[in-house]
């Protein structure tokens, strides 16, 4: 293979995977050393293979890892050389005056140390409280990510593209819906609305009135994403987004911005 391109395209992915060995590996590497085109292909293969990491079950590191990392980092940042305190001896000649001269700075140092420890303790408690909040938030996001991942990979999940309606502002959205699980994921980009308005997503069933599936107010330029649980087993005819008074309405009342039929 040396001097000629690898005959099989899969060799790039197999090399990135670390599966090639023996002569195959040697030949691939010797060719790669002198071929810019193959290096580019390998870069793409490296990226594809790196994505396999996402097949791993989601876990979170303990908060202690970040704490240790940040302490390690802080220890390596340039430190300001604290000027050493210089104690000037008192000129008093009496023994009591000399003791006071020693004890007063010591007492002061103890008091200062106690104050610093107290302040530091308060700071640590605030950090711990913040970390607890972060952990809870991460755990909830991970759980949501799992549910979304399962929804996306389920064979009976339908993907519905929502198209913007005539004379309405530009926008785009997609809904993944699984009626068996009673769950949908909305991802969309719409123009921001006035503070007294909200967008509202509707599940339009085959029979009966539209069911509210979430209210949202997008920030300029940002993608909105939400996972919504709805009653299981509803056969959907379409999904739609309407513009409603802030906070949403029990049934659609405003103009229809996006609609997507379930095929």
């Amino acid at each position: 293979m040396s001097g000629t391109h690898p005959t099989r395209e899969e060799d790039f992915d197999l090399y990135a995977l670390g599966a090639l060995d023996g002569d195959e590996k040697v030949a691939f590497e010797s060719h790669l050393a002198s071929c810019a085109g193959c290096k580019e292909k390998l870069a793409e293969a490296n990226g594809r293979i790196a994505m396999l990491a996402f097949a791993a079950p989601a876990t979170l590191p303990s908060p202690g890892v970040k704490e240790r990392l940040m302490r390690q980092v802080a220890a390596t940042t340039p430190e300001i050389n604290a000027s050493s305190a210089r104690i000037v001896p008192e000129s008093s000649e009496g023994i009591f005056a000399r003791w006071w001269g020693l004890l007063l700075p010591l007492a002061g140092a103890f008091a200062l140390a106690a104050l610093l420890l107290w302040l530091h303790n308060g700071q640590l408690e605030r950090q711990i409280a913040a970390l607890r909040g972060t952990i809870q938030e991460q755990a909830s996001k991970i759980a949501q990510a799992h549910e979304e991942a399962e929804l996306m990979s389920a064979r009976d999940t339908v993907v519905v593209s929502l198209a913007v309606q005539k004379n309405q502002p530009q926008g785009t959205a997609r809904v993944l819906y699984n009626s068996r699980r009673g769950m949908l994921v909305y991802n969309g980009r719409l123009a921001p609305v006035a503070s007294d308005k909200s967008y509202q997503l509707w599940l339009v069933p085959m029979n009966g009135a539209p069911i509210s599936a979430g209210v949202f107010n997008p920030v300029s330029g940002e993608m909105n994403s939400m996972m919504v649980k709805v009653p299981a087993g509803i056969a959907a005819k379409a999904f739609a987004v309407t513009l409603e008074p802030a906070g949403g309405m029990p049934g659609p009342t405003g103009p229809m911005i996006l609609v997507g039929p379930v095929s």
């Binding site: 390998l42 870069a43 793409e44 490296n46 990226g47 994505m51 996402f54 097949a55 990510a145 990979s153």
Partner: peptide, 28 residues
């Protein structure tokens, strides 16, 4: 060393979530 070109951006939580679904689906 080696260059790595990911076929997707992973800077947002949504992108990472979508990729989890895609990769698990492909392996399944």
């Amino acid at each position: 060393e080696n260059t790595i070109v990911l076929p997707a951006t992973l800077e947002s939580t949504i992108a990472q979530q979508q990729l989890i679904g895609k990769v698990k689906g492909a392996l399944d």
